[in-house]
Amino acid sequence: MKVGVIGFQGDVAEHVEILYKLKEERKRDIEPVLVKSRRMLSEVSALILPGGESTTIYKLIKEYDIYWDIIRRAKNGMPVMGTCAGLILVSKNAKDERVRGMDLIDITIRRNAYGRQANSFYENIKVNSIGNIIAIFIRAPIIESVGDAEVMATYDNQPIMVRNQYILGMTFHPELSGDTRIHDYFLSMVGREGYTSSGKREWYVSDIA
């Protein structure tokens, strides 16, 4: 099974490294690939949107027509994980015309909400179904409101990790700590034939504008 990482900008290599770790140490049957075109996207069974600059990544996936394909694939059941900038991109509303969310998960986001780099931090966080992890927040966004999505972790009474059937997202960077559990959890959302383990396909291409 090919697992794609959007490969234009950001900490792409860190995600790929974790995927290789899962392949080797946990014997996950996966092949990590970089996605920079529609063709590459069409070959993957699951997709990661990495950390980086959301404005830059947004611009490039729009430029190369990948943006709408991600939405189509995700709404047809391809699991997508977004970390930090990636979470902003999958959100329903990023409240910033410079970055339009794909509306794949029902959350509202505020970019750079903790402040600037001097306010970046890390914290020991309990994540439902996974356990305690070190969460690294770098110029992180805040999830201001959550609609139809499950909150998996909070910090300071605010949601920092959410999921729905196909989408997993967090405001922090699991790819930076070397911990493979969150990626492993994400891969467990991928069922056979590349669809989520529940196997349901609730949306179709015709559902979206």
């Binding site: 490969g7 234009f8 900008q9 950001g10 900490d11 792409v12 290599a13 860190e14 950390g51 980086g52 600059e53 830059t56 930090c84 900038a85 780099q117 970046s120 931090f121 890390y122 070190i134 690294i136 770098i138 110029r139 960077h173 930076l176 700590s177 070397g178």
Partner: peptide
């Protein structure tokens, strides 16, 4: 275990600019 937490945040910031 994470090599110097502050360092991780600083180098982590730099990593977010990669490819840019």
């Amino acid at each position: 275990d994470l090599r110097l937490g502050e360092d991780l945040l600083k180098r982590g910031f730099a990593k977010m600019t990669k490819g840019g």
